[in-house]
């Protein structure tokens, strides 16, 4: 049986290797994430950040190493991936809302169909979550009628409706207008403050500095450097990190 207690890492990534055909994208990545921590993964485009977090909820398979979630090996062949994904919420850069469903339906759908919650219960919670992401009044709008920032907050509410233990965010503000970036970041910050374990890929340096407990810098499939925000931003030692920071700061 699985022995996992909250003092142990909730997500533990150990020496993960991932290739797409001949292209090796992750070359031995390791990180431990404790419950309630906020982790930011930073790095140049193409360095494997998306691939890494997609391995955590088994949207990608891996060729070597191990990833455990609450002590359970994620890439165990016998593991029911659908059960695993109930514990891991994911928010994408392009929101990926269901365009034929209203905001309320988007949020209610998975709890009803997947968790088999009653409609009344699911709706009650969906309305709470929509309020939490500050979109009350938009329950009956369709995604196409909302701004990018609003859609992204619906996507966050939709993920939260599954009551996940860990949330993955893949450059969720990268496709947004500058004015709406802030409202999404505030939503994530609220979540972090409530103790949700968050793993974020982001280019929002100021946000990472303020909210992250730990920052990882990846380049070409390896973690070049990691540390607290203070260590990372003020005392980066690796030349690749320094160069990257000089470009983005």
């Amino acid at each position: 049986m699985i022995n996992w207690s909250p003092e142990q890492p909730i997500v533990s990534i150990h020496n993960v290797h991932k290739s797409f055909g001949p292209l090796e994208v992750l070359k031995g990545v390791s990180m431990d994430i404790m419950k309630g921590e906020v982790i930011c993964i930073i790095g140049p485009s193409g360095s494997g950040k998306s691939t890494l977090i997609r391995c955590i909820n088994a949207l990608n398979d891996i060729q070597g190493g191990s990833i455990t979630l609450e002590g359970q090996e994620v890439h165990d062949e016998k593991l029911d991936k659908l059960e695993l994904r109930k514990k891991v919420g994911m928010v994408f850069q392009q929101y990926n809302l269901f365009p034929h469903k209203t905001v309320l339906e988007n949020v209610m759908m998975a709890p009803i169909k997947v968790l088999k919650e009653s409609k009344v219960e699911a709706q009650k919670r969906a309305l709470e979550l929509i309020k939490k992401v500050r979109l009350d009044g938009k329950e009956n709008s369709y995604p196409g009628e909302l701004s990018g920032g609003q859609q992204q907050r619906v996507a966050i509410a939709r993920s939260l409706a599954m009551r996940p233990d860990v949330m993955l965010f893949d450059e969720v503000t990268a496709a947004l207008d500058p004015e709406t970036v802030k409202e999404v970041l505030i939503t994530i910050q609220d979540l972090a403050a409530e103790g949700m374990t968050c793993i974020l890929v982001t280019h929002e340096m100021a946000f990472a500095r303020e909210v992250a407990d730990h920052i990882y810098f990846t380049d070409r499939g390896v973690i070049v450097e990691h540390g607290s925000p203070k260590e990372f931003f003020d005392n980066a030692s690796d030349p690749r990190t320094k160069e990257f920071l000089s470009q983005v700061l």
Binding site: L59, K86, G89, F92, Q94, F98, V114, M162
Partner: peptide
């Protein structure tokens, strides 16, 4: 295909 991914990450099975 991103619609499939979004559904997959919400634990929908293929038929659903």
């Amino acid at each position: 295909s991103t619609q499939w991914e979004a559904a997959e990450s919400l634990s929908f099975n293929r038929t659903q």
